[in-house]
Design a binder for these strands. Structure first.
Lengths: 207, 207, 207, 207
DNA sequence: GATGAATGAGCGTTCATTCAT
DNA sequence: AATGAATGAACGCTCATTCAT
């Protein structure tokens, strides 16, 4: 009856979002298969059935989670690639900085690990992830390279056909952090920098 | 009933080994969570209960299995690195050929995938793996590079400090094959060649 | 808010009736157990909660519904039996024609099926049904027969004591249609005609 | 250690049979849909999972139950029809006596009711029931009639084409017993006798 | 009265593990 | 040692019912 009666309402943090956050933490902690909807519900502060008002199944919840986590950085990258007027080297440097900061430097790193370890048993999700995330991200890399070649800033080489090679340190870093970090830490920043240097050495050499 | 006690062990084609082999194939096919002890038993040709005479639980079976599958390729690499009298570039090329043929070109690729996807749930296995497999393999790479630099064949660069970078395409290729192959195939051989070319461009440039 | 109290009831096209109609169609389609209140609400054009303003539970909704669906055909039969001046055979033929046309030839067939399959779970509905529907309908048959015997048109036989026998093809036809129709269709019209012929053969034989 | 240690073993009443009996009593009591596997297990004196060692699903358990209940009388009828050397009227009388005694006079009556009320939601089971029970039983009736006609004992009439008509009192009796028995009992024996008389009146008249 | 988001008990099914033989 | 029938806890999902608005 007082004005504070329901603190929840003040924030009204979108129940869907709450569920996604809860799912994120539970899935990251236990993996998708070992996570129980009961626990997602408990952490989200809702009843089990409520989850199913927002997501038709556990698998769709997983998809929603992927989308939720991947969208902001993808949009940011899209904007970067579309609007930057820097030269290609600078653009690539900016992109690597972004990946270090936004992907490897946040909990998103764990989500990538989650996806990579769980997705193979759900072909449906795998396809979704490929089409909505992976191919878009690789497309950005390919665009940068093709543009660099067209402008005469980059050398034309097989890297253009294998953007996966430019992205290869990402899974390595993600897995290393998730598995070996406690006893064999990796300086992810310098690791990425070294890779960037490797790429630029190739791309900038006059052929 | 008692005088036969010793002979029995001789005849048995090592039931423990049979179970481990069966487990390997089942786990590779379905992953840890989705594998059923029933199927392991069936493939091993034993009763379900028998597995529990050799391994106290499904987890221990997995651990026992995973600690036993990396030795042969490592021995081959050890020999290669120790005995080759080729120049450093040639040695690196031989090593890449070996990885393409023995790791990525066989079912071992799926074993690597299995390990990468499941090992984070077994920290002690992770440690075992790091110490006995990963650090040894990375050590080979580091050795080749250091030797190359010492001989003046390779340029001294940060790659020496990040052998993980030379190995980064391995997890990428393994995951790509396991997850996206059906709808976005990757030419793993050319993928690895391109990476090798990338490395050599860096290592061979006169600074 | 209060002066409108009476008018509301006038405008509303009897929401209770809407719900009952919706419930009838849903229950007929799926049976009691498989019917969802959600769908009843949707077909009635009301919110789920609204149903509970008119019926305290799904069971009571079903009971309210089932007690209200048998009257019109009974009134028609009542009129038929009371006013017809045809001879007894003709009256019986008219009655069978009515049953074929009005019960077996319309969706009412499915309503009968619904009642027969679900009523055993609601003993008070069963009693209501016996007293208000079944015994009345059987009474018509008995009346026709007794009158036929009294007039010397029908032979006096045990059929008079078992009007259920004259009605027995009804449940058979209803169930056959509901269960076996797709792979073993029954020509219900000729089925009923054959039964009528059977009855008349008995009733008209000079003893 | 004593000889009585496990009384269970003495009877060893076939766990599958125990489960079927339990299922019979539970399904008859609550209907198929409302029955819980938990309760079947409890009444069978086994764990829930044990049921699934014998039946792959609740629906298959239902099928097993139907088969189990229907087989013995069907075999008996088969033998009767195949081996009897009585005349057709006598054979029909024997058959009706059998139905009265073995179907309507035992718990099988309730199983028939169960099937008729539940089967329409499981097209699979419906087909199974039609093919394994209904069409066989109707086949017996048709055989008797055709044989009777061929021998000149029965009149050739539409009854031959509608054996369902000869069986029509069965669902009527089953439902009456299940629904109205408490307040309007039906003398099922005389009911069936009257029907038989009705049939014979038709079949024996010289056309 | 009317709404519909939220609830949570309930169910069929699975499968790692046990244990009497 | 070896078996495999039996166990029962666990889980994803449903849906009748409630209740704050």
């Amino acid at each position: 009856m007082t004005t504070m009666k329901r603190e929840r309402r003040k924030e009204a943090p979108d129940k869907r979002e709450e569920i996604l956050n809860a799912a994120l933490s539970v899935f990251v902690e236990h993996g998708f298969g070992a996570s129980r909807m009961d626990e997602v519900a408990k952490r989200a502060g809702v009843a089990k059935g409520t989850i199913y008002l927002y997501f038709p199944s556990k698998e769709e919840l997983f998809k929603g989670l992927i989308e939720n986590v991947a969208s902001p950085p993808l949009e940011a990258l899209q904007t970067l690639v579309d609007t930057s007027d820097a030269d290609s080297e600078q653009l690539l440097r900016t992109m690597f900085a972004f990946v270090k900061r936004e992907l490897l430097g946040t909990e998103r790193r764990q989500v990538i690990h989650l996806i990579l370890t769980e997705v193979h048993r759900f072909p449906d999700v795998a396809r979704f992830y490929y089409e909505n995330v992976v191919s878009r991200a690789l497309g950005f890399l390919r665009t940068i390279m093709e543009r660099g070649v067209a402008r005469g800033e980059f050398r034309d080489c097989d890297l253009v056909r294998f953007p996966q090679l430019m992205a290869a340190p990402l899974p390595m870093a993600v897995f290393w952090s998730a598995i070996f970090e406690p006893f064999a830490p990796l300086d992810v920043d310098r690791f990425m920098d070294t890779h960037l240097d490797l790429l630029l050495t190739k791309l900038k050499v006059k052929s």
